[in-house]
Design a binder for these strands. Sequence first.
DNA 1: CGATCTACCTGATGGC
DNA 2: TGCCATCAGGTAGATC
Length: 279
Amino acid sequence: MPELPEVEVVRRGLVTHVVGRRITRVDVGRERTVRRTSRQAVIDGLTGHTLTGAGRRGKYLICPLDSGDAVMIHLRMSGQLRLAPAGSARPAHTHVAMSLSGGEELRFVDPRTFGEVVVFDPARADLEVPELARLGPDPLEDGLTAAGLQAVMAGRARPVKALLLDQHAVAGLGNIYSDEVLHAARLRFDRPAGSLQPRQVADLHHAIVEILNAAIEAGGSTLADAQYVGLSGQPGRYQHQHQVYGREGAPCPRCGPRSSVTRARYGGRSTFFCPRCQR
DNA sequence: CGATCTACCTGATGGC
DNA sequence: TGCCATCAGGTAGATC
């Protein structure tokens, strides 16, 4: 599932392959993908225009257009952006297809249709994409510091994992990376956030930055369901470095055979941790 | 404020 | 072979 590293890999792909190329034609299949506005608004907002950049905040892609508008793309659970030769067979669940000058097509493919494509006026962002303003700091884009993380955690009774997953607290972590980060920082998912010692917050901050950067370097994580691949269809490689996520029953990489990775249910989702070294 | 639940949606997988 | 239940999880919103 796309979290910050996967979205960042896609963003970089857009910078390399899409920014600066004119969108000559737009097809919108399923209306649900453009539900925020309308089919026509997305077609009109993109056709004949060019992405002048590609930005990211948390898991949101935000690309300015030469019209003065911007396009926001959120992959949610199963969305993919794929670049392919024009005229090649479109994958199932291709909901938006943008023909680019130069003969390729940028496709938004999303089996579960949770994802979104929105063209909006940045001057009206508060009205049209209000969630962007509510995002917490992006650990990489906004230079989140240990002190900044401390401010997020301080005095909170909520489990530390709940805060890591809360995009209003910190933007970009999802279920996979929050489990990995907590393992690296030796913290249990259900530790009250406010109970962390300054040293532990510093460790957590360090783990967040290190793991997100390492995952980006590795091209993101592609799980068995292959829900995430990059712009050119390339899978990520960071799943091979996962220490706990999806590894129930395996020996803890830090404790060895003395402890095995345990799966718990937290907030309706799977949580993987080592009961020995995470406290 | 927060905990918990639900909705949204499809595909893969496991049990029988 | 099919059928049904379950799981995957990002985010918003309702409810207590």
